[in-house]
Nucleic acid binder design. Structure first.
Lengths: 229, 229
DNA sequence: TTGGTTTATTGTTAATTAAGGTTAATAGCA
DNA sequence: TGCTATTAACCTTAATTAACAATAAACCAA
């Protein structure tokens, strides 16, 4: 009745079986599909509450499937599963709509956190009047209004600033690769964009400097970790 | 007083019997299982406080079992037993949510220390709101913030420094092979990385030199031992 | 066995290289 | 214009590599 329906597209059948079963144990209703070519039909038939797409698929990759879903103007949350080596390419338009990604290999806990997170956003986004705001230390971050409040003070954030902060926040306490940030927010990881990211990190740090418990930690050569303690 | 229940999965029956008996002498309640295929059922039936899994098993390897346990969102501590030749697999083991690993052959004493350690972490670690920090002598080491505090003084650590210190701390009082450190932190044990490790050991020693009770001891030709006295 | 010699390993510090931090200048856009 | 994004310039720091010193283990001759 009220169970969450998950469309899970995965071609590694062994992994897929484990994931499917453990999601079902958690009370989700999981439909698994292993062939990219059929996904859209299945999608239209079952109308899932959330999609989990492996990026690397035979016949049709996960990003293409996502585009097709989105092109029908469907706001269903989509979580991508990607391997370390395939971060680069097709990541355009990633931040539009409720998308997220997880790196393989992932832990089940992680997947479930992301699913619940995506569903929560989905729900909150729909209800009129509910504020989509999030508390970080002494600040309150309004995702859609793109503002950062510290007590009475309100700081307006630019688009890039707030997208970056959102990404950091969604993956807080975990390492995010620079490459991933660049691909997700800029669409590619060229040198200039990379320097650009540095600039935005500096900006966010200066906005957040009033509260010591918030730290954007650099992991040189790899990426960043947003720590809230 | 409720006894600690251990699920011990081991296919070498002779070794298994010895280990089981010596754990029982120490007051643990040990259930041994030799076939990987049955482990999950046994696990669900007995609900152990901790699992000790041999990696190399008939039918289903230890990593897979661990994944399955974790996929039910079960935070039970897991310790892997691995043979000398499987060092590279350790990385995989940690990503599947292992708490610790022990190299075969191991001493009973060592196993017991690791068990108690894992159980203690379990108890301490899961409280919500607790910071992920750890006390070492006069210092406090904050794992994700990458800081080392001595009283009011805060020393910022780099990623490599803090990862190395974390590793040493997790295996304190025990010899860690250089090779294992190199594989875990650098991904391989080439000559240059090896010298690199020497440099970081020197750095940590200088950071920790204020407290004589903390010693990183060299075991030449083998590795290091972090002693907290 | 002893003491000395060799050799491999690690300690230490400095030099180098590469990544990122910071701030200002420019470009682009509504 | 006034804002945001990008590029540029210069600076700081982390990570790696190099160079030389110290040390322990291995070897060997008497």
């Amino acid at each position: 009745m009220n169970t969450i329906k998950i469309l899970y597209v995965e071609d590694e059948l062994f992994l897929g079986k484990i994931v499917k079963e453990s999601l079902e144990i958690r009370g989700f209703d999981v439909i698994m599909e292993s062939d990219g070519a059929n996904v859209l039909q299945v999608f239209n038939r079952i109308k899932p509450d959330i999609c989990i797409l492996d990026v690397m698929l035979p016949n049709k990759d996960g990003f293409t499937i996502a585009e097709e879903i989105r092109s029908a103007n469907n706001p269903v949350p989509i979580i991508f599963l990607t391997a370390k080596t395939q971060t680069a390419d097709l990541v355009k338009g990633f931040t539009t709509g409720a998308n997220d990604y997880i790196r393989k290999p992932f832990s089940m806990e992680e997947l479930i956190v992301r699913i619940e997170n995506a569903l929560r956003f989905q729900k909150e986004g729909k209800k009129p009047g509910t504020t989509d705001e999030v508390k970080m230390g002494k600040y309150t971050f309004h995702l859609t209004r793109q503002t950062l409040m510290a007590g009475k003070e309100e700081k307006k954030l630019s688009f890039r600033e707030s997208e970056l902060l959102k990404l950091l926040y969604e993956h807080r306490e975990k390492i995010i690769d620079r490459k991933d940030i660049l691909n997700l927010l800029w669409g590619n990881d060229s040198f200039f964009n990379s320097r650009n990211l540095d600039v935005y990190i500096a900006k966010l740090r200066s906005y957040l400097k009033e509260d010591d418990s918030l730290q954007i930690i650099t992991i040189k050569g790899i990426g960043y970790r947003f720590v809230i303690s």
